[in-house]
Design a protein around this nucleic acid. Structure first.
Lengths: 196, 196, 196, 196
DNA sequence: GATGAATGAGGCTTCATTCAT
DNA sequence: AATGAATGAAGCCTCATTCAT
């Protein structure tokens, strides 16, 4: 019972942190504010984290790690290159729908020179990308010009940017639709795929 | 009668602000720190700006405005769609080389939910993109699927992300080269251009 | 679970604030100075008050409210008009002796255009004065020319001015004595009382 | 011509200072604010005064001195005690009408422990009061219980308080009228005059 | 004489962090 | 384990004052 309470506390803390860091920025989201939003005592998170930066950073790594893990799972399905690309875009859109704050959090902090993804996690992601590229090469699907860095940029960064652009500027266009996803996928595939 | 406002002071202030906002984030770059770096009195910028946020924001708008103006100039040259796309990428690489801090500043703040580009400036940029799209359509160069938002994403956001990815992660790969620019241009043109 | 709010800290804070506002004026009494004098952390009073002005103002209202309450108590004793006038002067002299800072604080801020007594409290005081006047009329003790405003001026303002004049200028005359009180009472009664 | 300009500058400076000190308090009225209000350069008054405090203080002394001088003039008229009392109240009401800011300024600063009237000026005033008292005694008009301090309190302080109470609280009662003056005079004379 | 750009000490306030409970 | 009162360093900003023009 005590265990469950604790897990809920930490969950709430993480959610509130992501929400407020997105809304106000790292500096603008105060520990007190986060604690109130999470219905937790302000001293609470010093039991789990060394400080505010450590907490936000560890949250960022966690979110990234989770994504890296998800990517690996797709690889294990032994689906084709094109299918996996599609599944990844699908997955990012799913997060955008189910947990938009998480996607915004990723967007904000991954474009900040004060936060850097841990080498280990980055390595995981690039290992995945390397294997994805190889998969594409095996089936002659991928444009040989495309590097891992390009995959990172076009598949991951681009998708996150596409969605956040909608959240931030083009919200007038309404909710993200299935057509939006198809359109993004069209663009991505157009760059990645080998021309005849 | 009295001293005349010193342009150099303001220039130094702007440069230091961009530099430190990039390095430490908006919250991490303190007014005192910026003032010292700019060799200016700590109270100095309250003569020109209402506060720290206003200053950084006005700087962001200024940088954006300058870019919007540059874009319009390219349009006036009456070059072709493909040429203009190339010139824009060229120009972004030029900034990356001559004033990398400015590009980082743009990168960091344009991916922050606390800073929003003024409607007027955004309108300028989208007017340009609209005309660029029309130019592409006239010559049947542009893929009809491409919208103004796509142009924004693929041409501008993507270029900035590409370069900052290098600054932030792949700095091990060394300086940006001519080949890097060609590669990016290849990717962009591949998405934008109409398939035969 | 956590520490319980320390009443003494707040008491010390209030005392130091009154003392320093009297000595140096509202602007001259800095938050840091007050905190040191009260042996409290400099940020402490922002836990209880929104800012320096709010704190001093709330203190002023509190002191006034306390006085208004005291006045009502005298009315409830069912003593005569003349007795109550005497008791009020007595009471003011008592404060002058036991807590001179409080009387000085009242004096300084009630003569400042930046601080205004809350409507509710002023209403309380004037309700009291109205009933006091009625009491005087019932026993034909009060000069019919005397209005509530006059009672305010002559009974309250005058007494406070009388004592503070001594504190500020005529301190050479030494401590306030019983004779001083009798003299003031004589003056007040002379104006208030109905001539034969 | 240069001379006239200068006198106007100083006049405007004094007026603005009084106005703003009344409205915002000594600490709240900044030098820049005063300078703007007076249409004068902010550095201007450091040509005439050592600092802000010196300026406000010298202004206060000046106003007081002017009053002391006026009082002496009334004495020279060889009017009766009662007449002079009336003329003083008249005069204070006249200031209230012609230059209310000056009266507010006097009110605010004379009730502030940070500003003290210069000994010399206070002496002038008390010499006047002494002679006024003697005048009253010669004609058996004044209550023998009344001291110079009482005259100060009842004649000067009281009048200023009476008017400022109207300005600050009872402004709903409208402009000061002739009847108001008569009423105040009635109260003052009632305390001061010897009962048959 | 007069100006107002520039300074920097010091004011107010926030907030990450600690620690008694 | 969890709380939240308390701390004080450090942030933002104001403003009296100086001084080049």
């Amino acid at each position: 019972m005590a265990r469950i309470t604790d897990i809920n506390r930490i969950k709430r803390l993480k959610d509130s942190t992501m929400k407020l860091v997105v809304e106000k920025g790292f500096g603008g989201a105060s520990a007190a504010m986060i604690a109130i939003d999470a219905k937790v005592a302000s001293g609470y998170f010093y039991m789990h984290y060394k400080g505010k930066y450590e907490m936000v950073n560890s949250l960022l790594q966690e979110v990234f790690q989770e994504a890296a893990y998800k990517l690996d799972e797709y690889l294990k399905t032994e689906h084709s290159f094109i299918q996996i690309v599609e599944e990844i875009v699908d997955h990012i859109f799913l997060i955008a729908e189910k947990d938009p704050v998480k996607l915004k959090f990723l967007y904000v902090l991954s474009n900040d020179y004060s936060f850097v993804i841990d080498d280990e996690i980055r390595l995981n992601v690039f290992n995945f990308l390397k294997r994805l590229k190889e998969l594409g090469q095996e089936s002659n699907s991928i444009d040989p010009e495309i590097s891992e860095e390009d995959l990172y940029l076009l598949l991951l960064v681009n998708s996150i940017q596409y969605i956040n652009l909608r959240f931030k500027f083009f919200s007038a266009k309404g909710e993200l639709t299935h057509a939006d996803k198809e359109h993004l996928l069209y663009l991505i595939q157009k760059v990645l795929i080998q021309n005849s």
